[in-house]
């Protein structure tokens, strides 16, 4: 049933195709309503291609590509996510109350993704802007080929963290299992601390840890151009 209340549109996924659900979400947002999606039941591709401001809540677990290519809207998932939540996001926000699977926030260019639980491998892969905050741990190859943006991990990381990153900033509070190629630590500046404080306070992640507990990781810029002096690095990176 689609219940049109004054401010909130409630959409039940049961017996609706994904297209019907998504079209109902777009229509609700365009009417200026908030949207509550019931019984998402780990369905793939929910909330894909949203292109309008407003609030959308998925009341349960979602499958792959939830809120993929998001623009403008603020999305909340009251459950866990399958692969690639918010991939290619341009703007808006996604808050996941549970855990996220692999490739959360892949290739985002803007907006913010917050995962209160843990996230899988390749979190923030090919990130091109925006911000990702993970309350728990991330697995291997997170931040792989990161280009721009801010990536905050309140727990531990897997191997090859931020391998071959070009630009952007990674902040890790816990233990880094292994730094990726050309990912190096840098001093936490006042600006970094202010950024961490603002984002962690705003989204109330991981009990709002102190900024000073984080290690900053940036690109060593040794992979920008081929250089025989850095042969050992290139041997594995090429």
């Amino acid at each position: 049933m689609v219940k049109v209340a004054e401010k909130t549109l409630e959409i039940d996924c049961t017996r609706r195709t994904t297209s019907e659900v998504n079209k109902a979400i777009y229509a609700g947002l365009e009417r200026g309503q908030s949207v509550m999606v019931r019984n998402p039941a780990s369905r793939h591709n929910l909330g894909v291609g949203i292109n309008h401001p407003g609030k959308v809540v998925f009341d349960g677990n979602v499958g792959y590509f939830c809120a993929g290519m998001l623009k403008h809207a603020d999305v909340e998932v009251r459950g866990n996510c399958g692969w690639s939540v918010g991939e290619d996001m341009m703007s808006g926000s996604i808050v996941v109350r549970g855990n996220a699977s692999a490739a959360a926030g892949a290739a985002i260019r803007g907006g913010i993704l917050v995962v209160h639980g843990n996230a899988g491998p390749r979190t923030g892969i090919s990130m091109k802007g925006g911000a990702i905050i993970i309350g728990g741990n991330v697995d291997y190859m997170s931040g792989f080929i990161m280009q721009k943006g801010v990536f905050i991990i309140c727990g531990n990381t897997g191997e090859a963290l931020a391998d071959s990153m070009y630009e952007g900033k990674v902040y890790v509070r816990g233990k880094v299992a292994e730094f990726g190629n050309d990912a190096v630590t840098a001093e936490l500046t006042a600006e970094d601390k202010a950024l961490l404080r603002d984002l962690l306070t705003k989204y109330k992640v991981a009990g709002i840890p102190k900024p000073t507990e984080f290690t900053k990781i940036v690109s060593g810029k040794k992979l920008y151009n081929f250089n025989m002096k850095d042969y050992e690095l290139w041997r594995v990176a090429l």
Binding site: N45, G49, Y64, F65, G68, W83, E87, A103, A107, F144
Partner: peptide
């Protein structure tokens, strides 16, 4: 010297690609 990725960042094999195509069609 820009070296692009060879694997897609958000899906891996043919099973995933079925879902990715649905995503592109939804959008």
């Amino acid at each position: 010297d820009q070296r692009s990725a060879v694997r897609h960042p958000d899906w891996m094999g043919a099973d995933d690609l079925i879902i990715k195509l649905e995503e592109l069609r939804e959008a």
